Amino acid sequence: MSIALRRLPALFLVLATLFALPAAYAQQMVAAARDGVMLRAAASQRAEARWSIDKGYPLRVLSRKGAWLRVSDFEGDRAWVLSSRTNRQAHMVSKASALNVRATPNTRARVVARAGYGDVLRTMERRGDWVKVRTKAGRVGWVSRKLVWGW
């Protein structure tokens, strides 16, 4: 067997690892650990504060720099946040202007609550195209996965 053929499995492993790294970051999500978490223009406490988010607001991790996370939100806005200000509690945010929270995972089920655009919902369970959530008011029900963003 030639040297090139013997090295093929190792080359495949290296390439698979390189392609998997960006996917791993793209899939990592965090949420604000408390109200008033500041998102900044750069990875520094002295950087311009772009906006603040409240507890549970989900963010997708794009990259890391020391204690800082480069993140994006459901609208695609990007900023930096201190990783100590986040946690791994699963949350969703409504992409719909009027989101029906239903008693069961069915479009014909009774509506138990409503949420609006940008409202944060605590993720309880996932079932196919449906997500069981808890609203800020404490109501529990199901929403269509197509109408929310997060994890």
Score class of each variant (00 low, 15 high):
Asp77Thr: 09
Asn106Glu: 06
Leu121Pro: 09
Ala41His: 03
Gln28Glu: 11
Gln28Met: 13
Leu147Asp: 08
Lys95Tyr: 11
Thr123Pro: 05
Lys132Met: 14
Gln89Thr: 15
Leu5Lys: 13
Ser97Arg: 00
Arg139Asn: 06
Ser52Ala: 08
Val81Tyr: 01
Ala115Lys: 07
Arg88Ile: 05
Gly116Tyr: 03
Val143Cys: 11
Gln89Glu: 13
Asp77Phe: 12
Val111Ala: 15
Trp51Met: 11
Met92Phe: 15
Ala109Pro: 11
Gln27Tyr: 00
Asp35Arg: 09
Glu75Cys: 01
Leu121Lys: 05
Thr107Asp: 13
His91Val: 02
Asp35Gly: 13
Met124His: 12
Val30Pro: 00
Phe74Leu: 07
Lys132Ser: 15
Ala4Leu: 12
Ala23Phe: 06
Leu82Arg: 08
Ala67His: 12
Leu82Ser: 07
Arg34Met: 12
Gln89Tyr: 00
Phe12Asn: 04
Val14Trp: 01
Val101Trp: 03
Arg70Tyr: 06
Thr107Gln: 10
Leu82His: 12
Arg46Thr: 10
Asp129Ile: 08
Ala79Met: 03
Arg127Tyr: 14
Val71Ser: 02
Ala137Ser: 14
Gln45Ile: 13
Leu82Asn: 06
Val71Tyr: 07
Arg88Asn: 08
Gly76Arg: 11
Asp35Met: 02
Met1Lys: 08
Asp129Glu: 15
Arg60His: 07
Val133Phe: 13
Ile53Asn: 04
Val120Phe: 09
Asn100Met: 14
Leu121Thr: 06
Gln45Asn: 14
Thr86Cys: 14
Lys146Asp: 09
Leu62Pro: 01
Ile3Met: 02
Trp149Lys: 07
Ala33Glu: 15
Trp151Arg: 15
Ala96Cys: 00
Ser84Gln: 12
Asp77Lys: 10
Arg78Phe: 00
Val143Pro: 03
Glu125Gln: 13
Val133Arg: 05
Trp80Asp: 04
Thr123Val: 11
Asn87Asp: 14
Gly150Leu: 09
Leu59Asp: 04
Ala90Trp: 03
Met124Asn: 14
Tyr25Trp: 10
Val131Ile: 15
Lys136Tyr: 08
Ser83Pro: 02
Trp149Ala: 06
Gly141Lys: 08
Arg85Asn: 13
Val112Leu: 15
Val30Trp: 03
Ser94Met: 05
Asp35Pro: 06
Gln45Leu: 14
Arg88Ala: 05
Ser144Arg: 13
Ala67Ser: 11
Ala42His: 07
Gly76Cys: 09
